[in-house]
């Protein structure tokens, strides 16, 4: 039963739907494009009565958009967008907003998002914190010999102190990493930490041709931080952090 059209994103009309990436649904639906002038929507049919959000659906949505972004500009839609039928996609989404979409796609040509993340190596960063904060090391030692049920408050106090120290490090390291990538990117956005050991999470919009310069600059930091933090770069990705809806 297919009674709605799921929309992944907006592309230029000459973009072919990626053949090796299926869409959401079980079994995964075939992805097509619906065109209107210079723009097109990446879509696939879905059953509107089946709730969305299975792991496979989430991965399919992002992997499809990222695959498209590797070859050309795409405006990603937030997960879960569906319209009643193909005519609605063309008549209500593409036609009224065509100029807007064309302008945004032009701006993104040759560019893609890269997600730069750094994660602390726990033992190393905690060692740094204890070295820099003798009072936390003392508190830790005072807890060590005592039974767990008597140290609950102290352990919270200790953890709170460590968290504050790690947060300060994160702020410092995020700024340092942003300074390193900035010369090689068009824009950079700092994302909130998603894990207590995150050292930095920076989404960057970069020229795809400058990718090697970007990763080269990060490799230098990776060497400097070897043993204390691990650096990861994902991309090219669809520009999730750099397209916004202006109402």
């Amino acid at each position: 039963m297919t009674d709605a059209v799921y929309v992944y994103g907006i592309v230029s009309a000459d973009t072919a739907p990626p053949r090796d990436h299926a869409g959401i649904g079980d079994p995964p639906a075939k992805v097509q494009t619906l065109k209107s002038g210079d723009v097109a929507a990446l879509v696939s049919p879905i059953d509107a009565r089946t709730p969305l959000g299975r792991k496979e659906d989430l991965l399919a949505h992002q992997r499809l958009l990222d695959a498209v972004a590797a070859d050309g500009p795409v405006l990603p839609l937030t997960f879960g967008a569906a319209l009643t039928d193909p005519d609605a996609v063309v008549g209500e989404l593409l036609e009224p907003n065509r100029d807007d979409f064309v302008r945004a796609l032009d701006e993104l040509r040759g560019r893609a998002e890269y997600m730069v993340t750094a994660r602390y190596v726990q033992e190393a960063v905690l060692g740094e914190v204890l070295d820099e904060h003798p009072e936390l090391a003392e508190l830790r030692d005072s807890i060590a010999g005592r039974p767990e049920e008597l140290t609950h408050q102290d352990r919270i106090r200790l953890g709170e102190g460590i968290n504050a120290a790690v947060s300060a490090k994160r702020e410092h390291d995020t700024r340092a990493l942003a300074d390193v990538v900035r010369p090689h990117v068009v824009q950079a956005v700092v994302r909130e930490p998603a894990h207590e050991l995150d050292a930095a999470r920076i989404a960057v919009l970069a020229e795809v041709d400058a990718e090697e310069k970007l990763t080269g600059s990060l490799a230098q930091v990776a060497r400097d931080w070897h043993g204390r933090a691990e650096i990861r770069v994902r991309g090219p990705l669809a520009p999730y952090d750099f397209v916004t809806t202006v109402r």
Binding site: L52, P76, T78, F79, A82, L83, Y240, D241
Partner: peptide
């Protein structure tokens, strides 16, 4: 990434929006 970033469709489309349970 895809749950709270990217374009929000209901800023563009009203009438033909299908509310699918997430």
């Amino acid at each position: 990434t895809i749950l709270d970033k990217g374009l929000v469709i209901d800023a563009y489309v009203r009438v033909s929006l299908v509310g699918i349970e997430l």
